[in-house]
Every structure is written in structure tokens, then in C-alpha cells.
């Protein structure tokens, strides 16, 4: 059984169709990259997988470990193993990161039949995993994402991923707004989390990130459909020739 199976997925926002039939199968242990020009539907795909109610799925199916993902609420999906690293992590004033993360970790643990972590166990886990993304632990005393720099927000997302141990990670343009050093730190964190029982979808506009997180498969999304799929070399080809190369190709049907 595949980890994630997307079949003929169509989705609309406010009546406008953004995803026009996506088919994609992700095996545990593999890293898929989804690239594409602005407005092609990359981020929509991530949000639809995570269960954002702004988007309406009009056709198709998504199975996670054989379970119907689309039937689940956003939080159920998260507990079942889907993790989306947000392109724009939301600032939530007043909610301490520590409290929030412990609540999330324990929600996931209870779903897996594990006992909740007490404060001591939780902090121990934090201390273990914060260094993975070089996260300043004092950030955890602040409100969720509040006043974080762009780089800190992205690192905090990957740190949360490390804490929640999801089976299916979706990274939505995690590279946007990062300088090269921050990018390396984030990529190292992601690479450390690669494992045979975990799948990744890495959404990006640029090939740059894929130099650090090397994908097994690359898909190019154009106008809500996967226009081309290939190995990692496809990313380099895109870098060279630009998206218009694929767009033209898909327009004339070849």
C-alpha cells in the first residue's frame, strides 16, 4: 500500500477551479518535489491535503495509508500523520509556543495510543530536537510565531515537524524568503528527518532548494495539472529552460 495516493483531484476556491485533476502516488521513504510557475496550484495542493476549508474538493480521492483523507477534518489529518509546513506560518499572539506544541504533541501521541508527555518529558524532547534546526530555544517562550524573523518561522516549522513525527510531510515553499545559510539549516533539518517510513512532498518555485533536499521524483504543475514528471534532472532542466518550456509544451499537447 502506498503512503499517499492522490487520484484525479479537482479543487476550487470561490467557484474557480485551481486543481484540475492531479494524480500522484507517494511511497514511504521517497521525496517528491512539486515545481511550477506562480498560480499553477502548488500551494493549493498543499492546503487541500492539509484540509483548509477555503478550498472545495469537487472530484477525486486522496488516501493516506489507505484511509480516506478527504473525510477527515484538518486536525484529524494532522493526527493521522499529515504535516504541512506553512509557506506563511500564522502568528498567534498570546499562545505560548511551548504550550501549543505540547498540546499538539500530546494530541498526536494519544492518537497513536501513547501516553501524554509530562512537562519534563516534553522539555527533554525539545532539548533533543531544537539543535536539529539550530533553533534558539528562547523562541519557545514567545507566542506562536509572533515576532519571529522569516528564517526563524521556517526553522520553527521544521522543528515542529521533528516534534510531531508525521508520516507524510508537505513543505509549502519552505525556501521562500530564506537566504542561503538559513536554507541550508532548514534543508539539513529536513534531511535528518528522512526515513524509510516517511514520505515528503517538497513544493518550491526554484530549483535551489532541491540542491540541498535531493528529490527522488520531480513533478511540474502547470495550470492545475501535472504537466511533466521525471527524476531530479528535470529540476535542473527547468532551471535552464524556464517554465515557459513546459507551458508551451503542454499548450500544444506534445
Amino acid at each position: 500500500m502506498s503512503l499517499l495516493e492522490i487520484r484525479n483531484l479537482h479543487a476550487t476556491v470561490e467557484g474557480v477551479e485551481i486543481l484540475k485533476g492531479i494524480d500522484l502516488t507517494i511511497e514511504a521513504g521517497s521525496v517528491h518535489s512539486i515545481m511550477g510557475p506562480n498560480g499553477s496550484g502548488k500551494s493549493t495542493l498543499a492546503k487541500v491535503l492539509a484540509g483548509d476549508e477555503v478550498y472545495e474538493v469537487t472530484e477525486g480521492a486522496v488516501l493516506l495509508d489507505g484511509e480516506d483523507l478527504l473525510e477527515m477534518e484538518a486536525d484529524e489529518r494532522a493526527r493521522s500523520g499529515i504535516f504541512m509546513a506553512f509557506q506563511y506560518p500564522v502568528e498567534i499572539p498570546g499562545v505560548s509556543t511551548k504550550y501549543f506544541l505540547r498540546a499538539a504533541v500530546n494530541a498526536v501521541r494519544s492518537h497513536r495510543g501513547l501516553d501524554p508527555l509530562d512537562a519534563v518529558g516534553f522539555l527533554k524532547m525539545v532539548k533533543e530536537r531544537a539543535p536539529m534546526v539550530d533553533l534558539d530555544p528562547t523562541l519557545l517562550d514567545r507566542s506562536v510565531n509572533e515576532g519571529f524573523s522569516g528564517g526563524e518561522k521556517k526553522r520553527a516549522e521544521v522543528f515542529q515537524m521533528a516534534m510531531l513525527e508525521p508520516s507524510m510531510c508537505v513543505l509549502d515553499e519552505t525556501d521562500s524568503g530564506l537566504d542561503i545559510d538559513a536554507l541550508k539549516v532548514v534543508a539539513d533539518g529536513v534531511n535528518a528527518l528522512r526515513s524509510p517510513d516517511r514520505g515528503f512532498v517538497v513544493i518550491t518555485h526554484y530549483q535551489r532548494l532541491l540542491e540541498y533536499i535531493v528529490p527522488d521524483h520531480v513533478h511540474v504543475l502547470v495550470d492545475g495539472r501535472i504537466a511533466r514528471s521525471g527524476g531530479k534532472e528535470l529540476a535542473f532542466e527547468l532551471e535552464e529552460k524556464g517554465y515557459s518550456w513546459i507551458e508551451q509544451g503542454s499548450a500544444c499537447g506534445c
Binding site: 492539509a50 484540509g51 483548509d52 476549508e53 477534518e73 484538518a74 486536525d75 489529518r77 494532522a78 493526527r79 504541512m84 506553512f86 506560518p89 500564522v90 498567534i92 499562545v95 501549543f100 506544541l101 498540546a103 499538539a104 494530541a107 498526536v108 492518537h111 506562536v144 515542529q160 510531531l164
Partner: peptide
């Protein structure tokens, strides 16, 4: 938006 972010981390509604 904040509600979705929290739920996307597995916390119940």
C-alpha cells in the same frame, strides 16, 4: 486562520 494552523497541528477544534 489561526484556528486552521492549530488544527493542522492535530489539536481538536
Amino acid at each position: 486562520e489561526a484556528d486552521f494552523y492549530l488544527r493542522a497541528r492535530g489539536i481538536d477544534p
